[in-house]
Write a protein that binds this DNA or RNA. Structure first.
Lengths: 145, 145
DNA sequence: CTTGAACCTATAGCTGCTAGAGGGAGTAAA
DNA sequence: TTTACTCCCTCTAGCAGCTATAGGTTCAAG
């Protein structure tokens, strides 16, 4: 049985994050020691490693919740898991496309800026005027992703 | 003078967002009509367009705050603006690299999954075991970005 | 037996908005 | 003038996915 701290270091997940996952029901409630400290089994370790890996691959906690409930049910068809992974792939591909457009604009901006005063600064100028952009870069909702 | 609604439609920024920008001091407090409604000048329109464009290019509100105060000061050297843009470019490039690694893993996962039961599902299997990955894909902090 | 790290709960904060409640203002027709 | 309608106002709470802080308890080592 592992304490929460050991579980954290062995999975690379911070302690408050583990407690948070328990709170939102992604991890089951842990057993407790006599002194009320959480104790984790090998199974919990596996489950947390699964969650972390999925987070690293960009899956949302909601998607992970679904994936976990699928993995708890080994006789189910795997089409649903497949669909979640495909959706995530599509999401990543679209982010890639948007980021590539951003990169183009930012490079142009930085390269062209030769002035030494703000008044001739290409960066400031381009930001003030979208028509100076070559690509139809993403709208606000997508840019931060 | 524009009402907040007109300003919103003409810049593509939602009304509550404009109020939010005012609240956090990114836009100056607007003049008010007799009936206490916000009224915007052409200058405010330009400033908001600048903000929106910078957001589209992925700059954080903090970075935008700095860029705006630079652009308010046309005699300053533009090195600072340049540095912010370069940092943003670097950020975008690193996100691109990380997302490309994710894409590789997700594609492998999806392509290899030929089983029809969860018990042979490649997606679930890979998520449970990072060593099945070919790349050293991002850590958790980066994946969602 | 004391120190100090690791644990506990509960609450608030982070970014960048978005949604909702509950009302006032402005315009145009009936 | 009343009604109807859309826009506007403030204030508060909520979203993801944590992270930080406060104030207290437990555990292992020396």
């Amino acid at each position: 049985m592992l304490t929460i701290g050991k579980l954290g270091t062995s999975t690379g997940v911070k302690v408050p994050t583990i407690r948070y996952y328990e709170q939102i029901g992604l991890l089951p409630e842990a057993e407790r020691s006599v002194g009320n400290q959480r104790l984790y089994t090998h199974k919990a370790h596996e489950r947390l490693a699964f969650i972390r890996h999925a987070r690293e691959l960009g899956f949302s906690l909601e998607a992970i919740r679904d994936l976990l409930s699928l993995s708890d049910d080994p006789d189910q068809p795997c089409a649903a898991a497949d669909a979640i992974a495909k959706a995530q792939l599509a999401e990543v591909e679209s982010r890639l496309a948007r980021l590539t457009a951003l990169k183009t604009e930012l490079e142009r901006m930085v390269v062209q800026c030769a002035g030494d005063r703000i008044s001739d600064c290409r960066v400031i100028e381009v930001l003030g005027d979208h028509s100076l952009c070559v690509t139809n870069h993403p709208t606000i909702d997508d840019a931060g992703q």
